[in-house]
Amino acid sequence: MTARVHRLTKRDKVVVAVMAGIPTLLALCLVWLPAIASIVLSFTNWTGVGGLSTITFDGVDNYKQLFSINPQFWPAVEHNLIWLAALLLVGTPLGMFLAYQLDKKIRLTKFYQTAFFLPVVVSTAVIGFVWKLVYDPDNGLINSLFHTNKPGDYLDWIGSPHLNLWAVLVAAIWRHAGYLMVLYLAGLKSVDPSLKEAAALDGAGGWQAFRHVVFPVLKPINIVVLVVTIIEALRAFDIVWVFNKGAQGTELLSILITQNIVGEASRIGYGSAIAVVLMVISLGAIIPYLWVTFRRERREGNGR
């Protein structure tokens, strides 16, 4: 395989360099350079106004303050983890269940599939708006239906810290389950139909057939799902930002960063420190997966 590289003419070498080089440069400049700069900035104190000379380094101060006196930091970490758990433990099985049922070649499959999938197509910002109409304390669908908008038995879906995280998680799961349904449907298509038939005829109950025949086939997809879910959980932002700006019980790391560095406040160093925490968690989840995937593919590729 390496032989091919040697056969390249000078001109081809330039072409290859351009083809790989320009996109790489763009990604380096606009994604990785800022990512590294965020790490550097996290050790500084900077208002973001004025030249780079106004930046002062103050070691791990930002991190110390973040871990000790910021009352929102640990809740935000906790909420990101709850978000992840909810998507994994509720959204994923739900998506898998829907896919399994829709794979049975029943009527109206198209309709069901579309219904479950629509939320994935709509932007998360719009989803935030739509769910706000549902959860509105006075006029929302839920409180109107159950008459829980009267003093005394008021349900404050958006404001109450006991409710709002779960309320917004319902919206997130609503979207996520549809997404995963499609992934799993594709996986199920690759299960040998005769296998499914056989399991069904054997009198194995739905659950038995699922567990012993279908689930093993879905294993490789589960890895992809795991990564997709981790990323979604860490990236969660739009829904909450539109829903209640991450106040009072729905704090997330992405929102804390935004408030510290893009809002009227400008604590660039401090916000960057939160960004670094989020980046470390993200990369910790991403890199090992990608490394293994690419290595395996390369081995398979060479073996071909």
Binding site: P71, A247, Q248, Q259, G263, A265
Partner: peptide, 29 residues
């Protein structure tokens, strides 16, 4: 502006949530 937007806004929201314990526990923070 930095103090108000990153500290007071969440703090006052916190007060609205639990007004009775707020003063005793959150002011030093």
């Amino acid at each position: 502006p930095t103090f108000v937007s990153t500290v007071m806004i969440p703090a006052l929201a916190d007060f609205v949530r639990s007004p009775n314990t707020f003063a005793a526990t959150k002011l030093s923070n």
